[in-house]
């Protein structure tokens, strides 16, 4: 029995762990340290229709228990992804979620349509990037836009759609329900929280983009709460993300209702964190004689959902 198997409804993964988009590139660099097929899945860097240069530097700032980034979705575009990156990753024997971004719903649809007949686990629609002026977060905060965008992509692409939402709003439930109603098969919660760093020596904002997205242990309680809230509202599976660095964090997310887990910034402190989590959780499940499926949402039991 594989105790660690994670059930996404539209697919079963051998374990719940995947890298968070943008923290892992297309996996090439990390594949020099461990075999990617140890992971449940790989989530790619965002793909936009055209190549993007991203934001001016500096793009990174360390914060207490976390970091800010303002990469700005730099990527080599749909053509680059299809030519150089996707074929390589498809040879690694690991299910793939391609993270998709755009300035307009049409741009998302363009990328999705071009990927429609690829061998993929699905697409992760990034409706939550805080570091670009157009698109990204602007879609994720408006339930009507979420519905329109996800429906539009669904028309041109039969692949399972996972919608990645932003925590930069008052209530996650409305956009989560909108995504589900539009046909999303799962949600990823959460993307980064908008933040700022000031360079007191230069007396100016530190990041080239002024604001950045906060990630790491600092955002874990926010992410857990949003997973908890969404779990009570939607029936599609949730992929939890935000500050996961150890087995204990992973358990907390599963118990709050996440069916699978993404790990981003923790890989910067420890590039082997993902394979270590895979092993660590497997051991924990044996020691405690339980399974991932039994844990998912367990913290809600005894409460009315």
């Amino acid at each position: 029995m594989n105790r660690a198997a994670a059930d996404l409804g539209f697919a079963r993964l051998k374990n719940p762990f995947m890298p968070a988009s943008g923290c892992f590139g297309w996996g090439r660099e990390y594949s020099r340290l461990f075999a990617l097929d140890t992971l449940g899945a790989v989530v790619t860097k965002a793909v936009t229709p055209e190549p993007r240069r991203g934001n001016p530097g500096p793009r990174l700032a360390e914060t207490p228990a976390g970091m800010l980034n303002a990469i700005g979705l730099e990527n080599s575009g749909l053509e680059g992804a299809l030519r150089d990156d996707l074929p390589w990753l498809q040879g690694q024997g690991v299910p793939i979620l391609v993270n998709v971004a755009g300035r307009t719903p049409e741009e998302y649809a363009r990328v999705a349509e071009a990927l429609a007949d690829q061998d993929l686990l699905g697409l992760e629609l990034n409706l939550s990037c805080p570091n670009v002026r157009e698109g990204g977060i602007a879609f994720g905060v408006d339930p009507d836009l979420v519905y329109a965008l996800v429906s539009r992509v669904g028309e041109v692409c039969p692949l399972p759609l996972v919608v990645k939402l932003t925590p930069n709003l008052a209530d996650i439930v409305e956009p989560a329900l909108a995504a589900q109603a539009a046909g999303a098969r799962a949600l990823t919660l959460i993307n980064t929280l908008r933040g700022l760093a000031i360079d007191s020596k230069k007396r100016r904002p530190l990041l080239g983009n002024i604001s950045g997205g906060l990630s790491g242990p600092a955002i874990k309680p926010v992410a857990l709460y949003q997973v908890w809230q969404a779990y009570r509202a939607v029936s599609i599976p949730i992929i939890g993300c935000g500050g996961i660095a150890g087995v204990e964090d992973a358990l907390e997310f599963l118990l709050a209702g996440a069916a699978a887990l993404q790990v981003g910034s923790a890989a910067f402190a420890n590039p082997l964190v993902l394979p270590q989590l895979v092993r660590g959780l497997a051991d924990w499940l044996v020691t405690n004689d339980t399974t991932v499926s039994e844990l998912v949402g367990e913290a809600h039991r005894g409460r009315e959902v």
């Binding site: 923290c23 892992f24 590139g25 020099r32 530097g57 793009r59 990174l60 980034n69």
Partner: peptide, 12 residues
């Protein structure tokens, strides 16, 4: 400034 140090995050 670097995060991954490997070429994966485009931070640097």
């Amino acid at each position: 400034r670097m995060a991954c140090g490997l070429g994966a995050c485009n931070g640097c």
